Simulated assay, not measured.
Amino acid sequence: MEASVLFDELATDDGHVVGMITLNKARQLHALSADMFPLLRQQLLIWKTDKRVVSVFLTSTGEKAFCAGGDVKSLQQTLVSTEGEEAKKQLVSDYFTAEYQVDYLLHNFGKPLIVWGDGIIMGGGLGLFMGASHRVVTETARIAMPEITIGLFPDVGATWFLNRLPHPGVGLFLGLTGASINANDAKYLGLSEYLIPAAKYDEVIKALTTLAWQGDTALHHQQVDELLTAQYADANFATGNLINHQSLFTELSTYTDLADVMTCIQAHDSSDTWLQTSIKKLLLGSPISAHILYRQVNQYAALDLAGCFQLELDLAVNVCLNADLVEGVRALLVDKDNQPNWLYELIADVPVNFVDNLFSSPWTRDCHPLRTL
């Protein structure tokens, strides 16, 4: 069986190396299974200290997706077949700890790390994407954090990056609705500075290997930026959607209660198909997930990156064991009946103390699996 992640080293003309990471599960849209995280982490740690390696390039096989997210279907099915609360807790903790360690390492890799954002970039895929120092999107890029549809919550560092978007209320809206955005939307939000046609992939790789790499890592970042900027060409990229609705997002950011946010969204009169599709996802999604996201962007905006991952691990364990994840994945990905039986039918039905408990860590601080981040 072929490996789920491929690694290669491309020799540069001046004697250096560009590390190549290729996600290799095209039929599953590169869903991140538990076996992939140790492979990624081990290779990244090797390349991080290898003086020959001047840059790392993260991509995937096929044309449909960079990465559609974590393999939550396998996670759900394993949870269903596992007996005992402690065994389930360990299972969930192991999966998300390994995933978040990789994401955190990407954010702190140091050397230029380029990600090729082609096709679907969702959930855990966006976690990988946001960890890169140089983020490319092609004309086919479709970016979203759609966790509300499966009863999870925006994780993989979303508590950090949704709170750092340059326009008010957008992070709240994207997290609540799981709205899909395109390459120009990504540029609007600063998620990517490089809009490069998919057809230029080989040209970009060639340019990396023929570059005269300087002796300083800071200069390497500048060199990669100049290289990618020179490949920028957005003529055939679709117009973004977000900018057309910024007044709504800004209004949402002024409210201090989720109920008021919901009222505003539902009362908003628009015939825009993109907006209506996004709002529908919110109304059909998990009410518990909506409450979690609302707290993420209102109470945890000041957390540093490590703190965000630690919080999200607490939430992941609690949500998988006590909330809507198992049922949400069943309805959307296993039985595919699209009829989730959420624990609470309406957002107004969710008790405050229930949400409080989801934000309570299952570990003491000195025993937290991510305490060393």
Rank of each mutant, 00 (worst) to 15 (best):
303 L>Y: 12
7 F>C: 09
11 A>Y: 11
122 M>G: 03
68 A>C: 14
350 V>M: 02
254 T>K: 15
332 L>D: 02
332 L>S: 13
229 T>P: 06
22 T>F: 00
159 T>C: 11
138 T>L: 00
235 A>N: 15
152 L>G: 06
282 L>T: 02
161 F>M: 07
277 T>E: 02
357 N>F: 12
294 Y>E: 03
109 F>A: 08
51 K>I: 07
216 D>L: 14
139 E>F: 09
191 L>I: 14
135 R>W: 08
286 S>E: 12
345 E>N: 08
234 D>H: 14
32 L>C: 04
103 D>V: 12
362 P>Q: 00
333 L>W: 04
98 A>L: 09
324 D>F: 11
178 G>Y: 02
162 L>F: 04
39 L>E: 02
252 L>K: 08
200 K>Q: 13
259 A>S: 06
18 V>I: 12
271 S>D: 13
104 Y>W: 03
292 I>A: 02
87 A>R: 10
143 I>E: 07
16 H>Y: 11
136 V>R: 03
223 Q>N: 13
66 F>Y: 05
361 S>L: 04
102 V>A: 01
292 I>V: 01
118 D>H: 15
304 D>T: 00
125 G>M: 02
178 G>S: 14
312 E>I: 10
361 S>K: 07
77 Q>I: 08
201 Y>H: 04
121 I>F: 00
172 L>D: 08
63 E>G: 06
349 D>F: 15
17 V>N: 07
210 T>R: 15
61 T>E: 07
265 I>S: 07
154 P>D: 05
